[in-house]
Amino acid sequence: MPRQSAGILLYRKTNNELEVLLVHPGGPFFVKKDLGSWTIPKGEYDDSEEALAAAQREFEEEIGSPVTGTFLPLGTIRQKGGKVIQAWAVEGDLDADAIVSNTFELAWPPKSGKVETYPEVDKAVWFSVAEAKTRINEKQAELIDRLVALVV
């Protein structure tokens, strides 16, 4: 069975323009990566947890605040590595500069024996739909298209 993740695509309307919140992964692998590296706040879950509950939990872990509202199902997508992501959109607003992500530990550099702590998400940014589609993981761009079809 493929790995499964659940996530939230937070959106807002500013001056009649739709914007979406994307996050950039933390850690040494993504430090110099930009286009195609951004993602919706998401994370893995197992069959003991409901997908929407997992999406809400992951959002709070990666952003540092809970997400509430009317959740619009965006369906699922499959990423290149085979991971299946189930997503929901919800309208809301937050200060992207004030996120507080959970952390993880990683031996870095490899085989150095030195363990460093990194944020799971190192930044969040509100992007226009057009800009978001250039930044997001290419398979997740479909989620933005589905959001636009629902709310525009």
Rank of each mutant, 00 (worst) to 15 (best):
I77N: 02
L52V: 10
E105V: 01
E58D: 10
N16T: 08
L22N: 03
L35R: 15
A87Y: 09
F30I: 02
K32G: 07
F30R: 05
G113Y: 09
L21A: 13
E120M: 12
L52N: 05
A96E: 15
E91H: 07
I40P: 02
A87W: 06
W88N: 02
P109M: 11
S48N: 08
R57N: 15
L72I: 15
Y118E: 01
E116L: 12
E60H: 08
I63W: 03
S48Y: 12
P28L: 11
P66S: 12
L94D: 00
L72R: 03
K32H: 13
E120D: 10
V20Q: 01
Q86W: 00
G82T: 03
A55Y: 04
E61V: 05
A53E: 15
P28S: 13
D97W: 00
L21R: 06
K33H: 07
P28E: 10
K42R: 15
E58C: 09
K111Q: 15
L106D: 01
V67P: 02
H24D: 08
L21P: 06
E44D: 14
G43C: 09
T68G: 09
E60N: 12
Q79M: 14
A89G: 02
K33Y: 06
G81V: 07
V115G: 06
A96M: 08
L74V: 01
G92L: 10
I77C: 04
F59R: 01
W38G: 01
G43M: 08
L106N: 01
G82S: 08
P119S: 12
I40G: 03
P119L: 13
G27V: 07
L74Y: 06
E19F: 13
A96L: 07
T39F: 09
L18M: 08
D46P: 06
T68H: 11
P25Y: 14
F29N: 08
I85E: 04
D34Q: 09
I63M: 14
L22E: 09
